[in-house]
Every structure is written in structure tokens, then in C-alpha cells.
Nucleic acid binder design. Structure first.
Lengths: 261, 261
DNA sequence: CAGTGGTCTAGACCACACT
DNA sequence: GTGTGGTCTAGACCACTGC
């Protein structure tokens, strides 16, 4: 029933085809998904400005207010960033402000270190055929190529995080330990610039565990030290899974901070 | 400079005094804070409908669209709930939908239990003089009265969560173990109806720990079982701290789920 | 049917940034 | 100054609810 409404909307004849093909929702939702398509297609790259609200309104044959509402939602989802007087930009993990947006481990004493993982050590980066569980969570066929990256993050010389990262091989063709080690930016910033992949959303499952012998060595802890296990699924546009990451965190001088709203 | 603008805004003369006293922000922010005041003052109680957008627009002498934007934000913060065709209501923890909004521990196998803590066992509820750390986080003077509630939550007969809850004595006058045990609703729902206190926002800090001897007994686990320690600060309106809760979770068949946006 | 929230428009003006 | 996003208004119509 929404379809008829939208198709008959004389103010937006250009959208009739879209309405039939894509969505049966409010106009601003259709605009939102059109913008989303442009983002995914790479029409505007991370850091770039997108057209002004009036330009988009003209392009889609709707009023500026409708475009505004669509952009508002995309901005709240951190896909776009508005800057008054300048324009609206495609969000990026490279900005100083939102770097490590997904890293929730904070020092108990905020003044101890001035943010940012001090040191990152890549252990290895292997190209493998996906084990079944990895293939499943990443939405691949068993045996397809994947990359496995393992690394240790240290704060103030103290190894604190051990991570085991799985990435689809097709999307990350050419990834090597050398490239990962050489890059000083956050990993997700490199994924954007080098592979055109932007992580948009993630989901983490937390547990308390005891370390495996291997983890004991990398984090230099006893085998009875309780660790926080953080299992992360990260998604690009349209909820496509793009990373599976299993981390273990040392939480004796740091904690995982979560805001509940 | 915003003040002048607002004071001179001929469409909203009724707000000039407010603008001078309260905020130097957009009109809809002022409306938002006025509504917030009414909520805090208990003018509308949890579950009640608030006046319609047009009524509020008339009361505050602004346009309906401005009221709408204010309510939109309050709805996104879960302080209000909109229901098309019916009205806008004061949110409550009693609604089936959003019960246990702050409990992020989910079963690994979603179908195992059908949501909702199966059993709750109140260990004790004591009225004490606040220990210094408790007084500090709750914003009280050291030695002021506080309640300490301890309890165990079990899922499928398995004790899974041990909690130590601290509440300001003044606000919760008359709280007893009996009342807590008798009530079948979520604790926060009882706080609303019996004490007029609504928890609006919370913050949790997570760590992996080993259990104390006491916790070992209550959760019936070995002393080398790693547990997830969850330290929660809960706030009412205007970010007033109203609860400090230290919980330890057994995470062998459950996990703490967190969405990152 | 009347009343509520939800969407959309059109136009005005403000605040900010660059040039 | 010009162009951008940010706020505010007024009025129209749609969608849902309950009498």
C-alpha cells in the first residue's frame, strides 16, 4: 500500500521505478538507500564530500528536507559526517577523532597513556583455505581463500591484546605481513585506502577465559590469569561480514567500557 | 548570541525567560529540556501518555515541527515511546519489549531458554553507612545511608550471576529483602512504581577475574573458573547516579553481547 | 469519524567556513 | 560575499488507532 502512495507521488516521478524495484518505505528511506548504493559503489570515497543537500534534492527530485532526513540517519550511523559550513563527507576510520572507534578497552587511569595503541606487532599473515567455522561466519564456501593475521598490541611496553583476525581472501588480495607492519595507521584505515573496504558496524561477544599456552607466551602471563575474550564480527555496507576477529585482553590495568542507552 | 536570537524570536515570546535562565541552544533543545523537567518532576508518570505534539506546541508557543524534533531525540534516548495513532508515552522498564534492556548476557544457543532470568534469589538487603568508595561513586557524603542488596540469578537451574547492588538510602527508603523477593517484575520496574525512580542510562566496565571464595559458593564454581566482572553505574534523569552494581557472570554457556555502531 | 503520530513540501533565516 | 549545513515555521496529506 505504501507502493501506490509513492508511485503516485507527483513530486517524485523519478523514483517510481525505484519504488517498484527497491523499497516500500517513506521517500526519505528510498533516498537513504540510494545514497547508500552510491557509497557502496564507491561513487564517493572515504573523506570525500558528497553533493550538497540541494544538489541531491535536485537529483532525486525531492525537497531538501527529505534529503536532510535521509542524511541525518546516515550521519547517526556514522556512514557520513556533517560539517557545518563545509559540507557532508564520507566517514573514514582515518580521522583522528574516531580512530579506534571499535576498541573499547580503556585504561583504568585515564591519564596513564594518551590514547592509541603504543606498539603493534604483527606475528604473521597467512593465506589459507578457510576452515569450516571461519567460512561460515564470513559467508564463504568452505575452502575458499582467507587471510589469517595474528598480532599483539602493547600499551606502555606491556603486551595487552592478542588477536587472531580472519579476512576474506578475495577482497584483500595482496595483503602481507610486511604491508601490515609498515603501515602506521589504524588497520581499518588501511583497509579503506588500500582495499576500498569500510567497516561500518560490528558485534562483539565477550567471555572470561584462561589463556592457551600460546597466548601465555605472547602476553607473558601465567596460565591461571583470567583474560577477557572478545569475539568480533565486523560488517561493511549492507551488513556484509568482512572480518572475524578473536581477541584476548589483559584486564588488570584496563577495562572494557560499554555505554548502555 | 543565540540568546538574542531566541529572545527576539517573535514566534516564541513565552520562552524568553527560559532562554535567559536555562540554555543558549536551539529552540528544540529548550523544549527538550522543558519536557525533561516535567518527566523528572513526575508530571507524567512511566506508562502515561504525554500531551499531543500540537498541545505541547501550543503550550510552548512553538511550531509542531519543533516539538517533534525535541520528542524525536527523547524517544531515541528511550525516555519516551511513540505509538502511531495513539500518542507518545513515558517509557518504562515494565514493558515486555524492553525488559532487561541493560542485561547483555545472552545464551550461546538462543533457543535454549526463552529469555528472562528464570529464578532470582535475594541473599540479603542491608541498610548501612556508605563505605567511602560507594559514597563517592553515588555522589553521597561518606557515612550516609545506603542499601546493599546481594542476589543470585539462575538460568535453567544454573546459578549464573552474582550481584552486589548499592543504592542511595534516601531515595529507596523502605526497601527490604522481602519486598525484593516478593516482586516478580524486573527490579528496575519496581524502582519506578514503588520509588518513582527511573533508570535512564548506564555504563559498564568489564574485566576477567577469578572468583572470591564467597562467589565460588554462590555460583558453585571452582576457584580457578574465570568469570566476567561487570561493574555498572546506572543513572536517572540529568545523569544523577542512582545505582552501583558489581556483578560476576559465568560465561561458559552464555556471553555478553555488544553492538558497536 | 476524530485524534494521534509520520511524511513531505516550500520558504525563511541563522551559523559557520572559505576565499 | 557565497555556499554549506542547522533551525524554524506553516500547512498539507498519509497511516494508524479507537470510538
Amino acid at each position: 500500500m505504501n507502493t501506490t502512495t509513492l508511485t503516485e507521488n507527483t513530486a517524485s516521478p523519478a523514483l517510481s521505478t525505484v519504488a517498484a524495484a527497491a523499497s516500500f518505505s517513506p521517500l526519505y528511506q528510498q533516498i537513504k538507500s540510494l545514497v547508500l548504493q552510491s557509497l557502496q559503489a564507491g561513487e564517493w570515497k572515504p573523506g570525500d564530500p558528497i553533493p550538497s543537500e540541494f544538489e541531491l534534492a535536485a537529483r532525486y527530485k525531492v525537497s531538501q528536507g527529505t534529503v536532510r532526513k535521509a542524511i541525518d540517519e546516515l550521519a547517526k550511523e556514522h556512514l557520513l559526517v556533517r560539517r557545518q559550513g563545509k559540507g557532508t563527507f564520507v566517514a573514514t576510520h582515518a580521522e583522528q577523532q574516531v580512530q579506534f572507534r571499535f576498541l573499547k578497552l580503556k585504561p583504568d587511569n585515564p591519564q596513564s597513556d594518551a590514547q592509541g595503541p603504543a606498539e603493534r606487532h604483527i606475528i604473521d599473515c597467512k593465506r589459507l583455505r578457510a576452515p569450516t567455522p571461519v567460512a561460515q561466519v564470513l559467508g564463504l564456501r568452505a575452502g575458499e581463500a582467507v587471510f589469517q593475521v595474528r598480532r599483539v598490541l602493547s600499551f606502555d611496553q606491556v603486551p595487552t591484546i592478542f588477536e587472531d583476525i580472519w579476512l576474506p581472501g578475495a577482497a584483500f588480495k595482496g595483503l602481507t605481513a610486511e604491508r601490515l607492519s609498515a603501515d602506521t595507521r589504524p588497520m581499518y584505515a588501511m583497509f579503506e585506502s588500500d582495499f576500498g573496504i569500510r567497516m561500518v558496524r560490528a558485534q562483539e561477544r565477550l567471555r572470561a577465559v584462561l589463556p592457551s599456552p600460546e597466548v601465555c607466551e605472547w602476553l607473558r602471563v601465567a596460565s591461571d590469569t583470567p583474560l577477557l575474550k572478545v569475539e568480533r564480527m565486523a560488517f561493511t555496507y549492507h551488513d556484509t561480514p568482512m572480518e572475524w576477529r578473536i581477541g584476548v585482553y589483559l584486564t588488570d590495568t584496563r577495562h572494557y567500557l560499554n555505554e548502555l542507552n
